[in-house]
């Protein structure tokens, strides 16, 4: 099978999986008890008001008809209007996605680079105290409960010693000040980003480091490493040019998927840091039964993850010439 055929097959697969996800999502949301209107405990809302609102939201239609509209609307690019905000879903996702991407892709890339780098080094010194120490530290970091460490960081770095802002993405007092220029505003956003970034870095690096370490240990046992040494290459060359690139393959897969999942954001990270991203929005949308917003967000995430899977598969072949699509 050549690459073209493989691509075509995978795209069809993606389409089928996506359609199944769409259907499951629809059923999950519409069969769950409570709709956005009946959940309002508001004494000024009479049963007639509820009926009117339900009709205006289109929720009085039979389920199969709602399903057909949903499929039709989705494929005609109409993602609907959020029940909660009364604004087009696409606009809300468009607003919430950039902060999420900014924070989570940066965090993933930084954690991956550091994980690969450190994993490579400690594997090289296997059995030495530094290997034991760093491995234990990485394991501890990897199992840290994110909201806890996030709150601890906020309390210490932002509240006690005041190096960073407590939360959010910008300091309103700077942004509403007409005298503040672009640099001040950009610096402000980056300043707000540092603490969540630090938290994500601490929690995520461990995993990459451990994957890289074990992959590196496998690679170091390969014959070509022995050959490289026999050729008289320096230890540094053997490690950096021959072992590390091959060992980093599993990390690449993991990073690829993490990058895809970064569109999902991290509901917990975003909540604790009041980061105005899509993860927090998803939680609100689900808890407020805001079907259009929740479903569109989930579908978007599903699509990105499916496509990222495909890209990682293709990338793999380029990184490792031993893999072929035959």
């Amino acid at each position: 099978m050549n690459l073209k055929k493989l691509l075509l097959r995978r795209i069809i697969e993606i389409f089928v999986v996506f359609y199944i996800i769409m259907t499951i999502l629809f059923l999950l949301f519409h069969l769950a008890p409570g709709d956005p209107v009946s959940m309002m405990v508001d004494l000024t809302l009479t049963p007639e008001d509820v009926a009117l609102l339900v009709a205006q939201l289109g929720l009085d239609q039979p389920l199969w008809l709602q399903y057909l509209y949903y499929i039709k609307n989705f494929f005609t690019g109409n993602f609907g209007t959020s029940f909660h905000y009364g604004r087009p879903v696409i606009e809300i996702i468009g607003q919430r996605l950039p902060p999420t991407l900014l924070l989570f892709t940066t965090a993933t890339v930084l954690a991956a680079v550091a994980g690969i780098w450190w994993g490579k080094l400690i594997a090289w010194y296997k059995g030495k105290p530094v290997d034991t120490g760093v491995t234990i530290f990485a394991l501890v970091c990897n199992t840290l409960f994110l909201p806890w460490i996030a709150l601890l960081f906020i309390w210490f770095f932002a509240f006690r010693i005041g190096w960073f802002p407590l939360s959010g993405m910008m300091t309103p007092e700077i942004w509403v000040n007409p005298a503040a220029g672009f640099l001040a505003k950009a610096g402000d956003v980056l300043h707000h980003m540092l603490l969540p970034l630090m938290t994500l870095f601490v929690v995520n690096t461990g995993a990459y480091l451990l994957i890289m370490r074990s992959s590196m240990l496998e690679t170091l046992r390969e014959d070509y490493i022995l050959t490289a040494r026999a050729k008289g290459l320096t230890e540094r060359q053997v490690r950096n040019r021959h072992a590390a690139p091959n060992a980093s393959l599993p990390v690449v897969t993991s990073v690829g998927l993490s990058l895809a999942f970064s569109v999902n954001g991290g509901a917990l990270t975003e909540t604790v840091f009041s980061w105005p991203g899509i993860g927090r929005e998803l939680i609100f949308a689900v808890s407020n039964a805001d079907y259009p917003l929740a479903m569109a967000s989930f579908l978007f995430i599903a699509l990105v993850v499916l496509v990222a899977n495909l890209i990682v598969d293709i990338l793999y072949a380029y990184l490792d010439p031993r893999i072929s699509y035959e």
């Binding site: 930084l110 680079v113 550091a114 780098w117 450190w118 080094l121 010194y125 530094v130 190096w163 300091t171 007092e173 700077i174 000040n177 503040a180 640099l183 001040a184 610096g187 402000d188 980056l190 300043h191 540092l194 970034l197 630090m198 870095f201």
Partner: peptide, 30 residues
């Protein structure tokens, strides 16, 4: 040399932190 190399990566976030810490000390009137 190992330690130096080990710390190379950590230097990136540390550098960012230092730069931004000073960069964002911009005063704002409230």
């Amino acid at each position: 040399r190992f330690y130096l190399e080990f710390l190379k990566v950590a230097a990136v976030p540390l550098f960012m932190a230092a730069v931004l810490f000073f960069a964002s000390c911009a005063e704002h009137a409230d």
